[in-house]
Design a binder for these strands. Structure first.
Lengths: 218, 218
DNA sequence: AACGGCAGCTGTGTATACACTGATGCTGCC
DNA sequence: GGCAGCATCAGTGTATACACAGCTGCCGTT
């Protein structure tokens, strides 16, 4: 693995996991020493992060981008636009069997998130497979790329939301509804189901955020 | 101006103006000598181009990204998604007076593109102001950013389309219809007008492309 | 005491030297 | 004559040294 990849992955993780708080200035020498790479690959890593919007290349140094409540609204507005369309396109172009299978798995997902030993990793992996299946089904690399760049920021927010078993169970049902609509080849329903899901997710995130405005890291 | 900015601007222009054909390998030493900068800022420029999708960082060296006919379809599919939503949001949130003024200017635009001495630059500037006004009206930086990154590729395609006076006159009327719908605060109409405009643009581009498949630069 | 200017420093921007990897072409052996 | 192995090299990846700009704090002057 290249040094720049290593630096990029480390910084990206630090930002997403809120170990580097918004507003933190990433000085080149400081970070290059901390991560054990030279300034050159570190600069490349910072460039990539800035291109993704995780950092901002303001006048003096690179700064970790802030995510405020208004940003969350904007983010979900774009997300609704992109994922709504993606779901509709997937319903037209996707393979029904693939999404039927995903629907069945999602309907069985509640057992992953509840109980004594919740397998959250398996749950997120399953949801990720739905995203991947939609990406593949739309066969539009530009749209897929736009959604990928959006998901980086969403992961950052998920860390704030601290999803509970109740929300995850409901989300699994919503995801199953999306998969069902796609499998049925119903674009309008797929888009509607996606919009509903995203609105509920947003409400949840904002409710959490409003009740614990200061608790960023745990 | 920094050397990396200079290299970035030069390469970006070369790609957009089709002086660097798709598939061209951009070797670091070669380009750094050609542009009169060192390899370090050149690499930063290549990184930015790759992040925008104008180049691809395949295994050996950076390659100018290809734009095929299928890419154009995909591009316009995303464009319809983003700009349709943007027009709808602008209709809800925008300032009516701003878009009324733009509408009047656009209705007067046909005189810019026809006659003995067409002022194409003024025309494109006017259309650009409509884009800018919409960007500002939606007050969603993520959506605006997504559209900005899309427009880079569209400029590349515009070079292929070689717009004629007839198409530009029609396009001006379509733009005016969009501005009118936004000024009237009618989101559905604004989105519909945008979708219509984009479909006609796409048809035009594909017609040109089908009749002159090889003529990339002139 | 307050303000202006200068010096030092911190940190980014750029250039260049070195390392390493993958490819290519030659040479020697079969 | 063909193929395998090696040497050379072209090109990227990384490190480091140098240049330069903006800021900060001190000192001198008024």
């Amino acid at each position: 693995m290249r040094a720049s990849d290593k630096a990029y992955a480390a910084l990206r993780d630090d930002i997403i996991e809120w170990r580097l708080a918004p507003g933190t200035v990433l000085a080149e020498v400081e970070q290059s020493e901390r991560l054990g790479v030279s300034r050159t690959p570190l600069r490349e890593a910072l460039g990539r992060l800035t291109a993704e919007g995780l950092t901002t290349a303001g006048g003096r140094g690179v700064v970790v981008t802030d995510i405020s409540l208004e940003d969350i609204d904007e983010l979900f507005e774009l997300r609704e636009t992109l994922e709504g369309r993606a779901a509709a396109l997937a319903a037209r172009r996707g393979d029904a069997a693939t999404f039927e299978r995903l629907q069945r798995e999602l309907l069985d997902a509640p057992r992953l998130v509840s109980g004594d030993n919740p397998a959250l990793h398996d749950y997120y992996e399953l949801v990720g497979r739905l995203d991947t299946a939609i990406d593949a089904a739309i066969s539009n690399s530009y749209l897929a790329q736009a959604m990928r760049s959006l998901r980086v920021h969403l992961v950052r927010i998920r860390r704030l939301a601290a999803d509970d078993a109740g929300r995850l169970t409901a989300a699994a049902a919503e995801h199953a509804a999306i998969a069902e609509a796609i499998a049925a080849g119903n674009p309008g329903l797929a888009e509607a189901a996606t919009v509903v899901h995203l609105h509920r997710s947003l409400s949840h995130v904002k409710a959490i955020h409003a009740s614990h405005p200061k608790e960023h890291h745990g």
